[in-house]
């Protein structure tokens, strides 16, 4: 089982994430899957693999907490720091957004609003990714070869 991000989908997600970063005044953002794999990032790629792994873990733990208190899901998780804050929100069944924003540059209300806008904008792309049931190479002649 694998899922794929072709050039077009990657460009679409990247463009929308860059726009989200600009509109929300965040310092960095990434989209990852619920297994913790980075799909696209914007702003900074420092320690993004780790950030994605922890984001997926944090979001999954929050979802379990939601269910424990009788909620189907929590839309988002907000971590407030002294200078930096994190906003984590589900974009669809499989994809999560992590936004990092500075206390002095932005506000959680703005980030939340822009995250909702982002979800609407990338909905179709995420749907088409989720519906790829079979692994089909972008170019059928593409083959993967192990290095000797």
């Amino acid at each position: 089982m694998a899922y794929e991000l072709n050039q077009e989908e990657c460009l679409e997600l990247q463009t929308e994430l860059d726009e989200f970063l600009r509109l929300s005044d965040s310092s960095s953002a990434l989209l990852c899957d619920k297994g913790g794999a980075v799909l696209v990032d914007s702003g900074s790629d420092e320690e993004n693999d780790l950030m994605a792994a922890l984001t997926a873990g944090s979001f999954a733990a929050t979802r379990e907490l939601a269910r424990t208190v009788g909620e189907e899901d929590f839309e988002a998780v907000y971590h407030q720091g002294e200078k930096r804050n994190l906003y984590i929100a589900g974009m669809c069944e499989e994809v999560i957004l992590l936004a990092v924003f500075e206390q002095e540059n932005s506000q959680v209300g703005l980030v939340r609003m822009m995250a909702r806008k982002l979800r609407r904008e990338i909905n179709q792309t995420l749907d088409s990714m989720a519906n790829k049931k079979e692994v089909v190479a972008e170019d059928p002649t593409v083959s993967f070869v192990l290095k000797k």
Binding site: M1, A2, Y3, E4, L5, N6, Q7, C10, L11, Q14, D33, G35, A37, L39, E138
Partner: peptide, 9 residues
């Protein structure tokens, strides 16, 4: 499941 990103190779 493996994630393949053709844009980033």
């Amino acid at each position: 499941m493996a994630v393949v990103n053709y844009a980033k190779k």
